[in-house]
Design a protein around this nucleic acid. Sequence first.
DNA 1: TTGTACGCGTTATCAC
DNA 2: GTGATAACGCGTACAA
Lengths: 342, 342
Amino acid sequence: MSPRRSKEDRAPSQVDVARLAGVSTQTVSRVMSGVDNVRPETARRVHTAVEELGYRVHAAAASLASGRTRILGVVVVSTDRYSSAALGVGIEQAAAANGYTVTTAAVADHASTDAFHDAFDRLQRQGAEGIILGVPVELDSPSMRARTQRTPATRTDRVSLQADAPLAVDQNEITRLAVEHLLDLGHRTVWHVSGDEYWAETVQRRETWERVLEERGITPPPVIPGDWTPESGYRAGRTIAAIPDATAVFVSSDEMAFGVIRALHEAGRSIPEDVSVVSVDDISLAAYASPALTTVRQPFEALGRAAALRLIAEIEGGEPVGGEPEITPTLVVRASTAPPRG
Amino acid sequence: MSPRRSKEDRAPSQVDVARLAGVSTQTVSRVMSGVDNVRPETARRVHTAVEELGYRVHAAAASLASGRTRILGVVVVSTDRYSSAALGVGIEQAAAANGYTVTTAAVADHASTDAFHDAFDRLQRQGAEGIILGVPVELDSPSMRARTQRTPATRTDRVSLQADAPLAVDQNEITRLAVEHLLDLGHRTVWHVSGDEYWAETVQRRETWERVLEERGITPPPVIPGDWTPESGYRAGRTIAAIPDATAVFVSSDEMAFGVIRALHEAGRSIPEDVSVVSVDDISLAAYASPALTTVRQPFEALGRAAALRLIAEIEGGEPVGGEPEITPTLVVRASTAPPRG
DNA sequence: TTGTACGCGTTATCAC
DNA sequence: GTGATAACGCGTACAA
């Protein structure tokens, strides 16, 4: 692992431990993996030798011999966005709980499909036994099919615990919760600030938003495009401020909602008196916005956990460990929504 | 890497490529690493075979043979905090640019020293050639000394590019910028909402805050404790709201500042008219708070990059690659600070 | 319960 | 410029 050193000062190996403990390497191996029947007395001798030498199993050698790495790969967009971070926490948690290690490969936010493929390949080469895609990649393309044949993969925007289960994060549900909340409050229509076009969520939410409005006989107004950033939310907010009769907005992320609200404030509109805003995510700052954000919580950590568990189950050919996590979105009503004036 | 399969359907190896290309495995190795002198014609044949077979280098085998893994380990607290995420982006960037892979080991936020050690050991066992500690661990303890002897490590709160250079993220500078800004505005004293006690930054900032006040002959008021979360900021804000003559606060993170400001608003104090607030970090939402946050920007990405580069340099025994990054804090003046009333 | 022999897929060394 | 061969450190199969 570390650069090759002289014979004398290299890290202690199984052989060294075996010699010191007066047993075979096989016995050391057994003791280290903790499974087999080894006489307690023998195990103790081995442990002592391990301690004394500071011996640690050499992962590369072990995985070369066993064919297993217990590495989970994660492809993420290189961003400090809340959702990615929270997702990572969940993945790491589930991985660690099951003896897996996580290695990440980041790609730029709007990278090409090739960049995604490269990231996938890097992880595969590192020996990842399963790969979680926190990026918008099409899994059905021939090139991805070829890759996932060798290494199982899951998208975090489409996790299901059983192969044929419905989507585990229901974007329709998220959207319906948000839009119907506004409509039920009495708003005549709902404007929509969308997320980045590259993401599946963006498309799904837009479609559902349209459908919900149409179900109530409302013609959807034009979409106001965003890209998840607060800056884009600010720009969208200025657009909305220029629409006199806009009273309700469904914003596709909390971070954009901060921008929207600021732009609206600067234009002299008050929230929620003049305009109601519902967003999505429930980041930790949502409750501390002014006004506090009404938002649809996405359980990112649980989602990350689910993705990891599902993958581990697939790798080990068993059932998901740890039971089915709850990954249902919830509407959190706070202060950014209210019935329309008059 | 993947679970052992039958002889027939296992991944193609160097031998397979060599046979198909009609060369030795050694030549395949040379072509894959791209370095040695290989006749272009030969290289082409190898590449064709690689393509056809879908061959990929087996990292575990390569690292067993070479003694190198090109893995960088990162110990992080499992949190969705902005700073961790941004740090990770920088680390990942620098690592990828230098052909390194990043593997992470998360520990709970207030985990014991043992948990840190375990995380370190996990990464070491995975073959990490260098480890970045994004957690508050003491490197000088005997147990950490023993560990870092075998594997170089850096803390992200104390990165310097040369061993004896001053701290690269100057917490004193951050604090001085913030506190003097308030003092120069005419405030008589500055209150302080501190971060979590476990972190070195917390202590350093508190000490500098006291020093700066004392330099101007001001007796520091009691510290109001926080823990980086907006919730703790909110609690701190209520405390401050109960102090009639508090007009200026130095808050140790933007996320806490959101909480502080909300509590102050609820108590009927306006920002910055009644109370000025300066915080630290400049997260992407800082500009979209109400009012927009005056804050001291910490260049987390650059810091992550610096940490990774420093480590890589140490691993490879050379100079830091890519030059010295700029990791100077900057005061960003926005709307949450103003001179005191009357 | 414990030990022996071998193979995992690659790189390093040295010869050609 | 290219090839043969010996490690690398561990797990598995099988023998004792």
